[in-house]
Design a binder for these strands. Structure first.
Ligand code: SF4
Ligand code: SF4
Lengths: 140, 140
DNA sequence: TAAAATAGGAGAATATATATCTTATTTTCA
DNA sequence: TGAAAATAAGATATATATTCTCCTATTTTA
């Protein structure tokens, strides 16, 4: 019922790239700054590239950069880039996962909740998130 | 990002008990009807008892029964009975799980999402769910 | 062409989910 | 009163998923 560490790393990563849109950033730097294991993060960045959230450059002077405006990248985008389509119960993504799905009274509820939940996640984009002051920084 | 099989079994179980509030039901019967492994289900029922969702009776003629009105048992109640408090990211349940929590811009978002999500789950009680016709049963 | 970076695949280590088994306790009723 | 039938509780096994590393290939720069 939680996002994985991998997904959290991905979010930190996009958040860091949001603060460095002016240049190309190496995995090593993101890894250091966001305290995520370098080789794991490299894999995660590949997923972000496939999802057209980041762009990569190889070779000397290579690295990563966001490929879209932070305002056009939502929490849902990043989560789905890493975990694929999400749902709160297996039967939502694959009806055949459960023999009861055609008669089950809970099944349609999970489907509805998935839609509502995804909407909640879509509401948060990285321009807004990067602009958010954490509670401990708020003024009196 | 999904509920576990254990939790789904728990929900099926409460749903079955909702349809049999007139009597005490043995684990064996729930297991058969809801296609859940008997000894696993027995463990799950212990959690439901601890959460005051079900009541148990030992010995011959023993079994289980809901201990509250179906209308007063929500999806959130059952999920929390099985999984404990839920949140979408580890730092929400335990700030110390992540060194960034005091400065992280995403942290407060997860806290807000948790509250919104829990509200969604609270809206569904078992009286309503049991009254829901699955899509395949709807009239033309 | 050497050095520095990412790409991609394989796989190891660890944690979690999914059960099962065994023994103890409670309750009924012949 | 004692055998049978049920749950309680704890230990343990198995499977799967998560988390992370390593190796080799490819690309790019200078
Ligand atoms: S029992 Fe209902 S809710 Fe649970 S997996 Fe099957 S169809 Fe989905
Ligand atoms: S990085 Fe932020 S959101 Fe992620 S675990 Fe740490 S505090 Fe929570």
């Amino acid at each position: 019922m939680q996002i994985t560490r991998e997904t959290d790393y991905a979010i930190r990563c996009v958040l860091y790239l949001t603060s460095r849109t002016d240049r190309v950033v190496m995995v090593d730097e993101i890894s250091r700054e966001m305290a995520a294991p370098k080789s794991f993060l490299a894999k995660i960045l590949q997923k972000l590239v496939k999802a057209d959230i980041a762009r990569s450059f190889r070779g000397v002077k290579g690295g990563f950069q966001l490929s879209r405006e932070p305002r056009d990248i939502t929490l849902l985008d990043v989560i789905e880039a890493v975990e694929g389509s999400i749902a709160l119960n297996a039967c939502v993504l694959d009806r055949t996962a459960c023999g009861f799905s055609s008669t089950c009274a809970v099944h349609p509820i999970w489907i509805g909740l998935r839609a509502e939940f995804n909407e909640l996640l879509k509401k948060h984009n990285f321009a807004d998130i990067a602009g958010t002051k954490p509670s401990s920084d708020r003024e009196p």
